[in-house]
Design a protein around this nucleic acid. Sequence first.
DNA 1: GTGGTCTAGACCACA
DNA 2: GTGGTCTAGACCACT
Lengths: 124, 124, 124, 124
Amino acid sequence: MNHEFNRHKPIYKQIMEHICQDIVRGTYEHGDKLPSVRDFAVQVGVNANTIQRVYQELERDGIVESKRGQGTFITENEERINVLKEEMKKEIVQRFITDMMKMGFTYHEMMTTIEEEAKNDDSS
Amino acid sequence: MNHEFNRHKPIYKQIMEHICQDIVRGTYEHGDKLPSVRDFAVQVGVNANTIQRVYQELERDGIVESKRGQGTFITENEERINVLKEEMKKEIVQRFITDMMKMGFTYHEMMTTIEEEAKNDDSS
Amino acid sequence: MNHEFNRHKPIYKQIMEHICQDIVRGTYEHGDKLPSVRDFAVQVGVNANTIQRVYQELERDGIVESKRGQGTFITENEERINVLKEEMKKEIVQRFITDMMKMGFTYHEMMTTIEEEAKNDDSS
Amino acid sequence: MNHEFNRHKPIYKQIMEHICQDIVRGTYEHGDKLPSVRDFAVQVGVNANTIQRVYQELERDGIVESKRGQGTFITENEERINVLKEEMKKEIVQRFITDMMKMGFTYHEMMTTIEEEAKNDDSS
DNA sequence: GTGGTCTAGACCACA
DNA sequence: GTGGTCTAGACCACT
């Protein structure tokens, strides 16, 4: 499988985000094993060094833990995952609100807009 | 006035966005004159070339028009401005929705979250 | 009447070209009087200085002659006009041929292309 | 090699045109790697920033693609190249025809003129 | 004074 | 080494 990457954002960050999304969505659970660096690199079609960096940064953030000779695992620390979820949600929401406000929209208009999208989604 | 710039995004893009926000919010109207390249550069504390690039890209996008020896102006084409507003809104909203969905949130949860932020804002 | 000018070419040159085209096409004849600087400026909607420069350069080229207190006239020198026509034609043709050759077209293809345009023009 | 540039046209545009001509003529094919910004700059004797701009504008036009840390490549999109060829041809031909018409020439005269040039070229 | 182009040289992130 | 951004300062043409 060949993933599409956004040109204007570091690939390693995009992969990091993707993993985090999988975690908070429940696709990965605490303690799950991640693919090996090499396998993962082949799967997404990037250099192994790039995946290496992804795992490093995720470990630095306490999201994953690498065990020598065994592989890399989602942290057993459930609280860390909850915090991650809140962090990500907050960042996305805050960004949305400030961007919309800079354009002059009110909270009411923001909610209406999302409601409309929800309807479009239903009917499609 | 000395503006703060996000270190992970080109300054010229941040300035472009800022101008576009001013336009859709109504701070600038169609036909309005923008500051000269050099004046604007001094105002925001960047090099004149950076502003030059901002104006160039905005002109390519049909948002402003540069007139020789006279200055740079918001386009007279009101329709273009309406389109700009829709484009910007759509991009922000779509981004928000897809990011939230990737994390597993429903439309309902998205709206609830914003509602909560609105309340916090009131009381603050 | 408000003329449209090409942004990326000096206005005075565009006006010069326009006058020369009128001359070689026969719209102006040798000895004809051109509009006064001010009238012409109003007609085409530019600054009078710009027209002033147009007349100056045309006079330098021997295309027009200005007579004090009377106005500006197309030269009486018919030979000069014939030379002008040849110069302009040659420039246009040479430019066309070299541009097409740079793209890899043959003389035969150039003529075919023009033939096609001629047909489209007929039927339209 | 030291190239000659037309003083009345931005160097970056002249280089852009040159590259496009190489593409439509087949000197470059889809997927080919272009010289690095710095190498190209040395080759044509201009500043690296000028080449940078050339690549940027070509990328915006969908003609080339820049890949981080790898280089700049002609697009893999063959259709885009075909469109480019048609665009360039059309622009040149239309310009020739309108210029000649403004001077009062007929389609027949245009073709005769080119035919004559072709003969001169043969005998030279 | 206005926009537009170019240079020289620096620094950064990515691979 | 590769593209990308930014600065400082210069020069040009147009008005």
